[in-house]
Design a protein around this nucleic acid. Structure first.
Lengths: 206, 206, 206, 206
DNA sequence: AATGAATGAGTTTTCATTCAT
DNA sequence: CATGAATGAAAACTCATTCAT
């Protein structure tokens, strides 16, 4: 997270003024648009103007909210991270960790059509960001993936499995892998089949 | 395969003249450079000039061998496909299908440092090409993946497993997924750990 | 007419803001420069940079006003069409259709020096555009010519001649032909002589 | 005509050797191909490679016969001039000058489909060459047109008309003009109609 | 003479970013 | 704060012409 939010009030808490509220709304609109368009078109093939248009914000104005394109990419990832948080928060309400993991898989499956068209947002962004910042080690996409891994590890831990870390990697890798294959082959059913396998694996894992 | 090889003799067979041999060599140099640079930098971040420089060929001359950038991308994929063929040919010498699959995993593991830096060539190219040609369904990267899937299916079939297709998808998805995670987290050990799991899975699969 | 005027207000009517007025002025400057330079140098021999320089606009900025070179060509033709309209509007004030046609010929004659150097703008553009878009049937230049034909036909009709359509074709063809010869031979007097003949023909046509 | 024929025997007379004969044949093939392709595609949109391919001559070899692209354009015009000569030679066999002129018009009409697609070869080339050599006054295309004018003038002279020069300009201008309109509007019938008018004009001209 | 290959300048186009109001 | 417009640095691609056998 950079200082690109300077001069605006933080995204948390109640806005200090209606003007600031409008600004925050615009910022959110841009983030959401960036999340969607960057996922659909890819980072390099997306011009700032594309995102501006999708968010219905004048091009010149984008730079008031995000100093660089990279900032917008980061915002898109933050958006995806927020959705992940919303999802895990939801899943955390389930009492059983096994049920949580299975619900996670179901959530993936519900997105299979999108995956067939555009792949997993976080996965594709991670791959693109890796090329985009040749030296940059720990980009935001990696962080989002790490958070997903951590949450998953925690579930396997709660489940009392022998190797929670390994299980988490296995599960998330399976997700990323089947997303990529589903996307490459444009076949949502592939994800259904592989998801079914994951569900029965989760039923038996220990 | 397009007609981009027109006016040059094919890469197989003995060259008809020293002239043609030199041209074929240059063509191969360009393909190899493209395979490497496109993998390292990504398609969109790579300029023709980058590949030209890597192959030590003047930029303008590249267009004598490849009419468009897309042709170069295709050549890079053909290069990767050739490497895959070389690998499976090698593996096919092993008498036991199970041993072949395990050797495949070992081959992956031997590439873990590269994967940690740049990901799986075919996987990352597949993801990029998907964005690059919005309408294009069956790009070359997808074909390469499909060939890998087919070979793997054949092994599981020979092994007499109940669901060779599903097993193949599982294995290749696991590979793509662990490549992506390994790359995102820049952690080659992740691939070692996950590879070890795959090996023991292969020992027990039926 | 394409949507190349999007985001700018139309060239007619009062500008909505000084900003927009300046933009419209620049757009007009570019159109006028395009009309002139494309006529003088030909479409294929003219680089966008030539037009940009003639209009004193940075090259990159041209693309803010015209998305492609073809758009600029179209703008040039629109410019020529506007001049034609201005001319026919002027001629329409004359009460007698015969007088109108003769005034048209006089207008042509007044341009004979330009014709000797560069030919008839519409005619040369029509010839070039025909090669430029191999499949394209009805390019803008053809439309401009058609409008001139239509106006001329109307005059012959008002004159009560037996074959207004044929007369119009004869007159306009004579104009295009003498423009081409005048240009090829660089001889403005040729146009004077042929124009004189046309005038006496118009005096007697029925 | 440049010195581009140096080192080859002249195009007239019997070749001094079979080798020279082959060379002359190739030269003629290139000229013919240039005449056709340049007419169809326009000078600026035609690459040397296009002509080479049409003549089935290796690109590099073209330069042995024609030092520059301009030389090839000139050769194409020489080709067209030769056809004109062949035509007028043919017409000269007719005893009556009026019959000759009418036969000329008939010859034009027989080419109306080509004119509708590509215009008059000499006329379009003249227009293009005019842009191509900004300073160059008397290009070859102009010479060809002049020769046509001269021949036509001679016929009107033989016919005893009052203004042979003016009549010739009128006739040739009518031809160029109707070719341009026919091409722009892609309407071969236009040429038929206008040609018919020219024929009856020729019947009555004095 | 023949020819595949090389060269390098030129052209169109895109876009992130900045600026002026 | 907003916004249309400006800018300049790439990047892909084309091609006439030349070169090395």
């Amino acid at each position: 997270m950079t200082d690109s939010q300077s001069a605006k009030d933080s995204s948390k808490g109640s806005p200090s003024s209606p003007r600031a509220a409008a600004a925050a709304a615009k910022r959110r609109r841009l983030s959401a648009a960036a999340a969607r368009v960057l996922h659909e078109q890819g980072v390099e093939r997306t011009a700032i103007a594309d995102i501006a248009k999708a968010a219905d914000v004048p091009v010149g104005n984008v730079y008031y909210y995000f100093k660089t394109k990279d900032d917008l990419v980061e915002a898109a990832l933050t958006e995806h991270a927020a959705r992940l948080t919303a999802l895990t928060d939801e899943l955390d309400r389930l009492p059983d960790p096994r049920a949580r993991l299975k619900a996670l898989v179901h959530a993936w499956l519900s997105q299979r059509e999108t995956a067939a068209r555009y792949g997993c947002p976080t996965g594709t962004l991670a791959a693109e960001l890796d090329k985009r910042t040749p030296g940059g080690l720990d980009h935001t996409a990696a962080q989002v993936i790490r958070r997903l891994l951590d949450w998953t590890t925690a579930q396997f831990h709660a489940l009392g499995t022998a190797d929670p870390d390994g299980n988490a990697v296995t599960l998330i890798a399976a997700y990323q892998g089947m997303s990529l294959l589903t996307n490459a082959l444009r076949d949502p059913d592939l994800m259904t089949r592989e998801g079914t396998r994951l569900l029965s694996w989760l039923d038996n894992v220990r």
